[in-house]
Amino acid sequence: MIDYLHIKDIHKDFSGLQVLTGVDFKVIEKEHHAVIGPNGAGKTTLFNIISGKFKASSGAIMFKGQDLSGKPPHTLNRYGLSRSFQITNVFNELSVFENILTGVRSRYGLRYNFFKRPDHNLSIIEKTKAIIKEIGLEDVSDLPASSLSYGQQRALEIGITLSTEPELILLDEPTAGMTREETGQAINLIDRVTANRTLIIIEHDMDVVFSLADTISVLHYGKILASGAPEEIRNDQRVKDAYLGEG
């Protein structure tokens, strides 16, 4: 049987500095998979490689039997991958509506059309509104992104990630910088919107990890130290030594 997603022996060095030295793990369809690890373990680099921002020095990313390594982000997006950013990366001057619309129309193939106006397309508008509702920003739909609260901006970040209707979602520390309360809401939101989709999430906050993930991989010095169900990871002595015990 073909694996859904196989991150296969990924190496990455930045002009001699070895950041990833053979990362290898598999993700099952519809699984919620968390990647954890101490700072500098290479989590974000790994993410950037999976989402196409960086090229791996060697290794492959097998997605449903196809090697996606080295493909540019916009191509990956059309394969059904979509990522969020650790530092909020939205269209600041645009309204929430326009932010979401941009992803939705891309999904509908209305990217480069010289004649059609996306804001005149009813199904795109409907879809956009549905996503805004899903992330709970209906009330601020017409406000520019820059005027939102931090929590709302993070929700928008996730909303944009969802807007191209991906089957594989990559979230990069979605709750970074949030208060306890905001984090709780974010967990609910993520849980809701990623139901029935495959999720890979990088997270520092162990509460978030243990409440969202079905499987956890621990990244340590550029390699996967351990991979398994949350309970296994919690009890794994190597993981405790390397990471959990310290923090």
């Binding site: 916009h74 979509s82 645009l94 059309n113």
Partner: peptide, 28 residues
């Protein structure tokens, strides 16, 4: 106001995000 017009405008705003939303910014 068309799709292409908006794409171009948004590329200037945030080109990286456009790429991750499936837009080929070089071709655009």
């Amino acid at each position: 106001h068309t799709a292409m017009g908006k794409t171009v405008l948004l590329m200037r705003e945030n080109e990286e995000r456009m790429k991750f939303l499936g837009y080929n910014t070089n071709i655009s």
